[in-house]
Design a protein around this nucleic acid. Sequence first.
RNA 1: GGUGGAUUGCCCGAGUGGCUAAAGGGGACGGGCUGUAAACCCGUUGGCUAGCGCCUACGUUGGUUCGAAUCCAACAUCCACCA
Length: 374
Amino acid sequence: MQCEMSFEVEQQDPGCAARAGRLKLAHGVVETPIFMPVGTQASVKALSQEDLRGIGAQIILGNAYHLYLRPGTETLEAAGGIHGFMGWDRPVLTDSGGFQVFSLSDLNKVRPEGVEFRSHLDGSRHFFTPEKAVDVQISIGSDIMMCFDECTSYPATRDMAGKSMRMTVDWAAKCKAQWIAREASSQALFGIVQGSVYEDLRQECAAALVDIDFPGYAIGGVSVGESKEEMVAAVEYTTPCLPVDKPRYLMGVGAPEDMLEAIERGVDMFDCVMPTRNARNGALFTSQGRVNIKNAKYARDFGPLDPSCTCPVCTTYTRAYLSHLYRAGEILALRLNTLHNLSFMLQLAADSRAAIQQGRFREFKKAFLAKYFS
RNA sequence: GGUGGAUUGCCCGAGUGGCUAAAGGGGACGGGCUGUAAACCCGUUGGCUAGCGCCUACGUUGGUUCGAAUCCAACAUCCACCA
């Protein structure tokens, strides 16, 4: 079976591992580096699909575990997949539910064959296997499916991390076999590198996954409590183990500065709930650093949120108005804040791409960080 | 005019002799959030002090008591019902 996805590195930055690429998926082309907004339940919280198109989102995430529980695969299949269901015609990447093995660990039990979940919605029991995770994602019809993995918690002893990683590799092989058996060639399948903060485990995992051979590779199990230094180190020693001609995706990252560190080390794709969640909680990203719009000092600040941002929020509203909307608990606060934070991350990825194409990513990054942390 | 009820910190509100600078909300102030069980969570919120601690506080004034937001009296204001 030949996967229909294709990836091309268009420009390699001469000063670092950063690269600009072009990822062709069933529902369109994604220009990398790219930030992918998270829409766990077939919805990027607070935004409509029109909003997402308006700010130039190229690809969004969905989550197999959550969509399996609700609305369920039968509904998604009847709708002809997630694209038609939610009215989004651009690419979608689905996480397999591997993260929920970590985040809902109190509600599940991990076994070598799979994970027994107790639904966080109604307590009902569900058994997720690698094969089932692929089946669910085929029902969803995402452009990129993720292997079912165990997102290793932190801290983990070397022994624990090794066992967890080897199980993830075993599951990856099963996911790949199921993907081939189902002949889902229009959907790509990415393997996920685990191994916690242990260099040799990360390298062993990457090698094993490359041996299985996937259309793309992800680095998972980061930003789960380890230090930023450890996270960056994990990226630094893992990316060289991944094929240069395949897309690399750093799962769950991140903050603006984290994304830049990873781009510099050769990562192409990112997703993170931070811009959307922080937006709903009043923390906004700007070129001059984080703005906590709840702070009293913004109540009568009639300037734009970020003077150098061209998003619809910054060109229309003032900090004072955003402050008021947040305090008043207005639903519009969630929407405008989310619109801005996502615009900011999408723009940061686009600017990074432009800098790489000019061969000056490191200068770009340095200038951004100097302003951001001033 | 009579009878009954009420008056607590910025607001609402619990407390009805010592464990009360006073529960719980709200508001205000600050912080956090990294493959979303998150429009959520955590701190602070009378004054002075680095701290021990001291001072001022539960409508007002006076009293009972070793001790009062809590008991008594008068007054003030508000509410309900009756004239």
